[in-house]
Design a protein around this nucleic acid. Structure first.
Length: 523
DNA sequence: TTAGGGTTAG
């Protein structure tokens, strides 16, 4: 005897699939079935919020599940207030009654709205409904108070809970760590009744966020069980700190520990390879990814393109770029930047137009990459055109980086007056880089008068700025005014201004060595 | 269902 089961179709996971399913449900009238509609909304919130909200508003009798799903969706969105509006609608809707799920999601929304009063009102309803003993609701309430800085109340609620689990404790710990309150976190961590790997991860992550890598490492080393996130957090800490050797060592240890690296791990380590020109490490990771059938897309594809570009393998970068089917804006930006970096300005511009043809909207970073490509390749007209396009077609307000590229480009062509005009437009106090770039151009074109003017401007912006002194003394030196140059260097020393040493890195037999100007091998 | 940590492009 055989039994036939009805297998419902898998839920839509892409927008076109969603539209198709929606259309099908309208055609068959199933959309009026609250259960079916609820599941459609549930699938839709994973893709967008406006679309399921529209479906919801057209429902004649939305059930609690549909309300809950939408409330949950908005709770963690940029507009958590909408969750509260939906909750109010739910209260006046005679056909539904808020349940334990509803309160969990609404309280979560309250935590994100940032108004303690709302949460307290909602909790009033919880008490009236008799749901105040629900573990999930209480856990969310604890998190709600902590998130709003009410640690005392959070702790009181926590202590008074008859039944609590590790989530209850983590609800407070996670906030201490997130907010960088590591002393409180440490004390609380010691008092915790139960801990799990996440508790430890919160601690490590809190220290990493505060730049306290050594303390993070101490906690990390004390951990009994480490998961992939533990390793990733620690790796991120070292990467942010520029301790790339430690990143590679940890990556190695992680594999010895038989923890399977994921996309986050690869992206982090690849990004370090890019920083230190560690091509062989990068290639090894790429091979590992291929061998293990890891899907290359999103951040990972971008990281690969970036690594190959920065290690000088443009062909490989292009290969990864071309092979990536769904390209987001980052991978385009990375490719454009890579081509620009190696002086292929024209190719960078071609890729830029390809991006436009693909219907993708360039962003701020795209224009930094493309303008920098123009600047490096000396493409003056194209640079002007791109700047115009950015401001007038794409309505992107130029940032300091965009101005920097333009001033650099104009400076290369000796169009110093135009460059100075643009530098003056820079509305930021951080305009320093732009003036530094202009000063470099003054030096190349031996415009002493402007160099002096620009130096003055630079020193107004930052009296400790070394670039101004160095460049001006170089201008004096190139003009043969060695006495002026020496005087300036003396003045610089007297004021305690130091010049960062030049630095370069090279990979030899898979080991990266770093050199500082005027010194021996460091790493 | 609740806490949920970790990533790219300039």
């Amino acid at each position: 005897m055989s039994t036939t089961f009805f297998n419902p179709p898998p839920p839509p996971t892409t927008v076109p699939e969603l539209h198709q399913t929606h259309a099908h449900l309208i055609k068959t009238g199933l959309i009026h079935h609250p259960f079916t509609a609820g599941h459609l909304i549930s699938a839709a919130v994973k893709l967008s919020l406006t679309y399921p909200h529209t479906i919801f508003t057209h429902l004649q009798n939305p059930n609690a599940f549909s309300y809950n799903t939408l409330i949950r969706g908005y709770a963690t969105s940029p507009s958590p207030m909408t969750s509260l509006t939906l909750f109010k609608d739910m209260l006046v809707d005679d056909n539904v009654v808020p349940d334990n799920y509803t309160y969990t999601f609404v309280l979560k929304a309250c935590g994100n709205v940032g108004c303690v009063g709302f949460g307290e009102q909602v909790y009033g309803h919880v008490v009236k409904t008799g749901l105040d003993g629900d573990l999930y609701i209480c856990n969310t309430l604890v998190h709600f108070y902590a998130k709003n800085g009410e640690f005392g109340i959070a702790r009181k609620v926590l202590d008074e809970m008859c039944v609590k689990d590790v989530v209850s404790w983590n609800a407070v710990l996670s906030v201490y760590c997130e907010m960088g309150m590591m002393e409180d976190a440490r004390v609380f961590f010691g008092e915790m009744g139960v801990r799990n790997v996440e508790s430890w991860n919160f601690m490590v992550s809190g220290y990493v966020k505060g730049g306290r890598v050594d303390e993070a490492r101490r906690v990390f080393d004390e951990m009994g069980v480490k998961d992939v996130v533990s390793w990733n957090v620690m790796i991120t800490g070292y990467a942010r700190n520029g301790e790339f050797g430690e990143v590679f060592r940890l990556f190695e240890d992680m594999r010895k520990d038989e923890v399977v690296p994921d996309d986050y791990t690869f992206v982090n380590v690849l990004s370090c390879c890019a920083s230190v020109s560690g091509l062989s490490q990068g290639e090894w990771i790429h091979a590992y990814i291929d061998k293990n059938g890891v899907e290359v897309g999103g951040f990972l594809a971008t990281a690969l393109v970036d690594m190959y570009s920065k290690c000088g393998c443009l062909e490989k970068a292009l290969e990864v770029f071309r092979k990536t089917s769904r390209k987001d804006i980052s991978i385009w930006n990375s490719m454009i930047a890579g081509l620009g970096l190696h002086g292929y300005g024209k190719r960078a511009i071609e890729i830029f137009y390809e991006l436009i043809d693909d219907g993708i909207k360039p962003n701020e970073v795209t224009f930094v990459s493309v303008l920098s490509a123009c600047s490096r390749s000396g493409l003056l007209d194209e640079g002007y055109k791109m700047f115009e396009l950015m401001v007038h077609t794409y309505n992107i307000k130029p940032t300091i980086e965009h101005y920097g590229c333009m001033v650099d480009l104009l400076g290369r062509f000796g169009l110093l007056d135009e460059a100075e005009g643009l530098a003056k437009e820079v509305p930021f106090k951080e305009a320093q880089v732009v003036w530094e770039s202009l000063l470099g151009a003054c030096r190349s074109h031996n415009d002493v008068e402007m160099a002096e003017r620009v130096t003055k401007k630079l020193l107004e912006l930052d009296p400790q700025d070394s670039a101004g002194y160095v460049q001006l003394s170089n201008v004096h030196a190139s003009e043969g005014r060695f006495n002026d140059a020496t005087e300036l260097r003396k003045k610089m020393r007297a004021q305690g201004v130091s010049k960062d040493p030049g630095c370069s890195m090279i990979e030899v037999n898979g080991v990266v060595h770093e050199f500082l100007a005027g010194e021996g091998m460091v790493l």
